[in-house]
């Protein structure tokens, strides 16, 4: 077991403590989001407000990335686990397995697939245009610059 200088703990237990402390920091941002949401009545979930707050703090360097890095990676890695309880909610709606319920579920699935395919195809097309436009612009600037140099 390797020990850190001055700490009677292993690296592993330090890592656990660090992850827990960092999750607490993320919780602070979440509750700041709850508070702002309640005060301003924004039609946004607290978590998204918290995300924006944390992002701003990271950009302005008010918070070092190292302070949240491990906790954030941990929570993102386990995100699927947190979606299980709302998923289980399906057992309160046995009528989803009736005819109209199945049609409802099938429509949601088909519509989602439709959105995935149209959006990704159109985006791929727009993305190429945006990139080409930028390259053209950069090339234009370069041509302009080289003309300048030659004169």
């Amino acid at each position: 077991m390797s020990l850190e200088k001055g700490f009677p703990f292993s690296n592993d237990s330090m890592r656990v403590v660090r992850i827990i402390a960092q999750i607490l920091i993320l919780y602070i941002f979440y509750y700041a989001g709850v508070l702002i949401g309640n005060l301003t009545k924004l039609p946004l979930p607290a978590s998204v407000i918290g995300l924006v707050l944390l992002f701003i703090c990271l950009q302005l360097k008010w918070i070092k990335v190292d302070y949240i890095k491990d906790g954030a990676s941990f929570l993102i890695g386990f995100m699927m686990l947190f979606f299980i309880p709302p998923m289980i909610g399906i057992i309160n709606y046995p009528e989803l397995f009736s005819l109209s319920g199945s049609l409802l579920m099938a429509s949601v699935i088909v519509s989602t697939l439709f959105v995935l395919i149209t959006t990704s195809l159109i985006c791929q097309w727009i993305e190429k245009k945006e990139l080409a436009m930028k390259e053209k612009k950069e090339k234009g600037e370069m041509d302009h610059a080289s003309k300048y140099i030659h004169h």
Binding site: Y27, Y30, V52, F55, I76
Partner: peptide, 12 residues
């Protein structure tokens, strides 16, 4: 925990 997990997406 979904709350702080969504907040964590600020990192990537």
């Amino acid at each position: 925990l979904l709350g702080p997990a969504v907040v964590a997406l600020a990192y990537p």
